[in-house]
Amino acid sequence: MTDIPAGSFPTDKTQAAPATKVRGYWGSVWNRLRYDYVTLFCLGLITVIVLLAVFAPWLSPMDPERSSMANRLRPIGHAKFTLGTDEQGRDMLSRLLWGGRVSLLMGIVPVIFATLIGGTFGIIAGYYGGKVNMVIMRTMDVFFAFPSVLLAVAIAGSLGGGIGNQMITLTVVLIPPICRVAETATAQVRSLDFVDAARASGASTYSILTNHVLINVLSPVLVYSSTLVSISIILASGLSFLGLGVSPPTADWGLMLSTLRQSIYVQPLVAALPGLCILVTSIAFNLVSDGLRQAMDVKA
């Protein structure tokens, strides 16, 4: 090889451009989110709901489990019971505050567990492909043969009620869809050249998974998981509605809706309150995950 001009290395002309502020991936996501007022509002709403639930013991005016036969089914706007009372004379405001704790817990904890378990299986299936993929994904397919509500009712119905069983049920129900998303995302990343470049540098599979695959798979999986929070809340309240959640005196939105159902002729508005809480919370989570998905849809 000859005709290469001697002298300094050729440099890229575009370097002359003024240095721009370097902003990482999450920085640019936040930059988009900053101007999405609907999402910001819903984020605020969720923060309020979470705070109300966390501080329920200090915020609720009364003991949520103390019933009083004399004060049954008081209307909304009552002097002593701001949001009325239920069919056993328990203060609705206190019960709604306490009930939010259970509902939020049921919305978030199963999603976290399912993301950890389903995500791991999905990444393994997507990265290794072949027989490993077949075993994992065909097993998931069997779970996809059940509509999610049906699967939840089936498992919870067999295990019986209780908060622990409800958590197990929801986790199992949420694993297959997360696993599928993680598998697709991983298979996509797996086919990119930088993974081959990492293999060519002699990196172990574990190192490639943690350093290269995980950071690229994480955001699609997290965005998807965030959409499941509201589904998890609705499923949980549905199970409680069927008597497959917390055991009675404990407050839970789904269970409250179920027991107040008998009182719709007397206090229809009070009876509608727990469902309204579920609806608002679930809409807020849905809109936030929508906004998050849009903000994260960055080319990088």
């Binding site: 509201s230 789904g254 719709i264 609806l279 679930s282 849905n286």
Partner: peptide, 23 residues
């Protein structure tokens, strides 16, 4: 669309009953 995917159907059922049957 947002309402439809966020609403618990059993609550919607209860509200329908309140509205069309009770009221």
């Amino acid at each position: 669309a947002v309402f439809g995917i966020s609403v618990p159907t059993f609550w919607l059922a209860v509200v329908l009953v309140i509205f069309f049957a009770v009221n």
